[in-house]
Amino acid sequence: MFRNVAELVELATSRNTKISEIMIEQEIEVTGRTREEIIAMMDRNLLVMEQAVERGIQGVKSHSGLTGGDAVLMQEYIKKGNFLSGETLLDAVSKAVATNEVNAAMGTICATPTAGSAGVVPGTLFAVKNKLNPTREQMVSFLFTSGAFGFVVANNASISGAAGGCQAEVGSAAGMAAAALVELAGGTPEQCAEAMAITLKNMLGLVCDPVAGLVEVPCVKRNAMGAANAMVAADMALAGIKSRIPCDEVIDAMFKIGQSMPSALRETAQGGLAATPTGRELEAKIFGIPLTKQ
């Protein structure tokens, strides 16, 4: 059983196999389920993700009216062809947004690792699908690789916004996606870890400050940028760029930053964007509370 990223990479490298394979084998050992059962369970999660992306890029609207429709706007913008960054990157942004817009509308999603950060992993996967043409099996493997890195973060730091801020949610999701992108693109286990480290380093300190306590503002757009961050970090790792701080130490830093974050910035809607004049106005409007009572 691996306890940290170093052990995970060492296991995969010494046995000349992929991170996803190590995760599957560990799951068999821990749960006693067969490989076929485990793959079928993950395939079901993949299907839920696919349906959420499809629903989101058709356009949804949340009950509060705060979010919805941005995935559509981005798809239309991509079609016009005059974008500045890149098509795959923007497609990932659109699909990450799509998933979170469905989540905000109380639709069905698969938490990866949480619901508030559910857009990043599927967003990047379904964007690179058009470029890399993965088999269904490779797409399922993508989720196992993401899961392996998320597993380390969850056990050694946190994946809860209430405990560790948004860095623990979208930050973790982006790191997981970056690592899985590298494996899918043919990178080494070591490069997966570099991609995770590079991504997470750039998410450190991100606070959880949802307006009105809703998983909408700024969560949906943070998923967009988490996906973009993951794509760029994956390319950096594949280019051979390394993180000066080892991945496990970055995760540890994230944990300690989360511990020292004030409660107002950990999913209580008491600080940050939630406490801005506009944030407060939106909250008052949605819940019908006079501003003076807040």
Partner: peptide, 24 residues
């Protein structure tokens, strides 16, 4: 180790919007 299964990380399939505040 608080989390032991990959499906604690990739999952659950749930109704939004929050894994800790809704699904949990």
């Amino acid at each position: 180790m608080k989390y032991k299964s990959v499906f604690d990380i990739i999952g659950p399939v749930m109704i939004g919007p929050s894994s800790s505040h809704t699904a949990g």
